[in-house]
Each structure stands twice: as structure tokens, then as C-alpha cells.
Simulated scan of single mutants.
Amino acid sequence: MPHPALEVADIFRTHGAAWRAAHAGHLSLGQLKVMSAIEACRTAALGGHVERCERCAHTQIAYNSCRNRHCPKCQGAAARDWLADREAELLPLPYFHMVFTLPAAIGDLAWSNKAVVYDLLFKAAAETLLTLADDPKHLGARIGFTAVLHSWGLALTHHPHVHVIVPGGGIAPDGSRWIAGRPGFLLPVRVLSRLFRRLFLEGLSRAQATGRLGFFGSQAHLAEPEAFNAWLAALRRIEWVVYCKRPFSGPAAVLAYLARYTHRVAISNSRLIACDADGVSFRWKDYRHKGRQRSKVMRLSVDEFIRRFLLHVLPDGFHRIRHYGLFGNGVRQANLARARALLAAAGKPLAEAPAPDALIEPSRCCPCCGGRMLIIERFARGYAPRPALSHPIRIDTS
């Protein structure tokens, strides 16, 4: 893959110091850490190693990654490791993609209450799916699923939502058989939307009653119980968006989707076009034209671009990928074994194995002759390679 001409790191290195000075006192420690990590990623500040081709002796320096979960460069390796575990857990049946989205008014509240609101978003979406799937009027089965939080829209605005990957069926309450959903259908979206709205607003009301929410700026008046209750009442009268896409075409398609979504950050380097003193240009897709996506170019001031990027820094320790129901941590392997046994008894074929080359990073090859690159020296952060070895043809920062 070609090296991007422009990276988020370049913007931070050029404009980050001035931006931090201009906004001193208004940034969280987490945001400052993210900026620092991205600026240092794949540079001498983090150390690295020297590689040499065993065939043609081509030599190059490769600097270490910051491994910050908000860094656009560092998500590929993390995604591959995570996907290796998920590949072994796929079941031989259709998978559905569902999206639970919060209204804009709650998105504004979430900006200053990320840990509480994002956690509630996960819990309300999970309880909605588990409750309706367990209802005999719908599926009548215990299901499992994986949920991934995204806090952004394609224009880097604050748009909290969770993507959920759900197998098309579940285990009967007594554990005796596998119950499959109808072809191309899992659960009614309208019923999902209403229950999700009720569960989320009930949870938000409890959070306010126990003092776990903070209200600032234009929402400061919501600290008064009467104003907060009136605000909730207005949210109960609008439709909430729960979207269910058609099933994936097979296990390989599920993994390809997860590879794109699980470790995504607010904007990838490949979407950036240009940056100068006047602003940053990047590509985005507009879906508002009768359901069709239209590729556009957006230009923001440098100040606004950095502000929007940092909107999406998660609280320390917050898990943005979570597993529920049959896939819950601690019970997942036993439930998967039970599900496979029930599916086999029902005559379901084994899952198709995804093409390994699509998910595994190719080994380090020499850019000159294609030979194998061997590590001949490692050096710690703040140090440089030994002089005898410091004659690389290029420095690899990709």
C-alpha cells in the first residue's frame, strides 16, 4: 500500500504546539496524550530497529509505533490480532449488521459525559436485542453479538452510535436446539427502536437522579430536575434510528467488515488531501442524496480539524468493543461449542474459511529485490542506530 502523502501526525507536528497553547486549560489529559503519541509515532522518539535484506543487503530503519488506539497508523496490527481470535468463533449461518444511533440532542450531552452516555448506549442496545430475541413472539432464543462504538460521522462531527454484528439465530431457552431466524430477517426494527429509546432514557434518568451527569454551556439549565424531565419528554416523542442491513454473504464478508470497523479511528490518513496555514482538506461521503452516497471534499480550518479529531478521544480504560449474550466473556467458548453442536445436529455445514491472505499482513520484504528483511539491530527511544549501521537507503515510517 502506498505511503499517504499527508497524515494526521503531520498536521499535529506542524500545528499541534500552537493549537495546544491557544487552548491551554481546555484540554483533557487524555487528549494531550493522544496528540503526543500520534506526533511521536514511527519517529526516532520511540526507538526502533534496523533491517537488512539477506539477499541484496539493502538496509533501512523502521521506527516503533505508538500503539495508541486513536492513532490512524497503529490500528492495522491491532485489528489483525483481534480478527485472528474472531475468525475461530464464526458460526455457519447468516450474520446481520445493526446500528443503534443516539439523537443529536443526546450527542451534545455525551460530549461532556462520555463514560456515562457511551456505556449506557452499549447497555441499552444490548438489553434491547437480548430482550426481543428472547421473546417467543419474535425469535424465542438466547443470542450473542459483538458491539463496536463509533462516536463520529464522516465529517468528524460528534455522532455516537454502535455497530452490532448478530448471528441469525440463537439457542433455545432450555438449550435443546438451535433456533434460526427467518431468511433475511432477524427482529422488527420499529419495535427495536421503541424499546431502545425507552431503555436508554430510563437509564439516563437514573444517571441524572444519582448525580452522574454534568451539564455545561447551553445545557446548564438541564441540571434542574423540571427542565431535565421536560427535555426527556421531548426525546420520547421523536423516532430513534435503529438500522438493520441485509445479512452478510458469508463468514469472509463478516471478517472483512470487522476489519474495517472494529479498529477504525475518526479519520484515516488515506482520506486526507492537503494541509496548509488556511486549513485541512479531506474526502467524505454524503449519504443525504436519496440514499446514494456522494463523494465530496470538505475543508476545515486547522483549529477546527484538530478540535473535531479530539472530540473522539475515549475516556481512559473505556472498552469500545464489547461482547454480549452467548458471546459474553467467560462463557463464550462453552456457548460456541454448544451452538456448533446444535447446528451440526440440524445439518448446518461448517463455516467457510476466509481467505488467509486477506487478513494476514505480508511478511517484511525487501523493496529492492523482494528478499527477506532481517532485524540486525534494535535501539531504544531517544537513541540512534550504531554509526556502522546508520547507512539506510530509506527510513520506513509507514
Results as ranks from 00 to 15, higher is better:
Met98His: 11
Pro349Asn: 10
Leu389Cys: 05
Ala78Met: 06
Ala233His: 09
Val99Cys: 09
Leu374His: 14
Val166Gly: 11
Ala77Asn: 12
Gly170Leu: 01
Gly291Asn: 07
Ala105Ile: 00
Asn229Ala: 15
Ala147Pro: 01
Gly250Asp: 11
Gly144Pro: 04
Arg67Cys: 12
Ile393Trp: 11
Ile267Phe: 00
Lys33Gln: 15
Tyr287Ala: 10
Phe379Tyr: 07
Met35Glu: 14
Ala22Glu: 15
Arg294Gly: 10
Thr262Met: 13
Leu213Cys: 06
Cys41Arg: 05
Arg260Thr: 01
Arg236Val: 00
Pro136Cys: 12
Cys71Met: 08
Asp276Leu: 01
Leu232His: 08
Phe215Gln: 12
Ala115Val: 07
Ala77Gln: 15
Ala277Gly: 11
Ala339Phe: 01
Leu46Gln: 09
Thr146Met: 13
Ala84Tyr: 01
Glu51Gly: 09
Pro160Phe: 03
Cys365Ala: 15
Gly330Arg: 08
Leu6Thr: 01
Leu129Thr: 07
Ala77Asp: 14
Pro387Phe: 04
Val302Glu: 06
Glu377Trp: 03
Arg142Cys: 08
Arg299Glu: 04
Phe248Asp: 11
Met298Glu: 14
Glu352Thr: 09
Leu6Phe: 01
Arg80Tyr: 00
Leu154Pro: 03
Ala155Met: 08
Cys366Met: 05
Ser65Trp: 01
Trp178Met: 02
